[in-house]
Design a binder for these strands. Sequence first.
DNA 1: GTCCAGGTTTTTA
DNA 2: TAAAAACATGGA
Length: 261
Amino acid sequence: MDEKEFSLKDTLFSGQCFRVSENNGVYKVICGVGDNTRTISVRQDETDILRRDPFWSFFFDLDTDYSAMKQEFSSVSPIMKEACEYAPGIRILNQNPWEALCSFVVSQNNNIKRIMTIIETMCKTFGFVTSCGEYCFPTCDTLAGASDEKLRSTGLGFRAPYIINTAAAVAEGKIDFDYLKTAPVEEAAKVLMNVKGIGPKVADCALLFGCHRLDCFPVDVWMKRVMKTYFNGAGPDIFKRNAGVAQQYLFHWARTSGELK
DNA sequence: GTCCAGGTTTTTA
DNA sequence: TAAAAACATGGA
């Protein structure tokens, strides 16, 4: 697959997932929770094999037409067009919703490198080695029953109780991902924000990256800068129904192109 | 030593 | 209601 159509590098390293690495052009992903954990190692020039595999094709969202979306975004403004052309191969992953939610609770007031380190430590501390040969992302039941002290030992700091709260809400069924995938977005966000430790940003990330709600538009410190500097403080409505996808192009461009400091 | 990171909660005015 | 401080930690 052409890198402009689908880029492993830009999709995996644009801050939407965290159990990823790259070595000599080989991109490795570990995804999923507990016994359902999967892993793959693949080069950019081998991405055609992903198309033929139902699981990975879904995970990387390869059946969705992004060119139409990019065209629509590009007409909004020259900067948006630049962001689309900067990394046109970004797609929004279909991640396990619990993994995404938990990961973005870890992400608050944190940087991507450290988020990755903490999540790996959590997997080694609370996960187990599955048939795929890797430590799994811990289940919500495991983390709901974990002690604050042991969680802090993974580097979570003040986020430890937030993780416990979130895990408990999922384990008890207060957070139902099937509901989050279909409910009106405002309702879905409200359910998430009932948990102490989940605010609007984490809720939007969980919905966008874990429930494929492409209208969710997470605003972190980078997006705040972008919208203020280049869009006169406008909101997500200028990008219409797939604003979350536009957000991901802008976020990645802002963070890595060097245009915005 | 200070500042910052894909924020949120708590405290203060 | 709104602004500021507190929260852990490691890298720049």
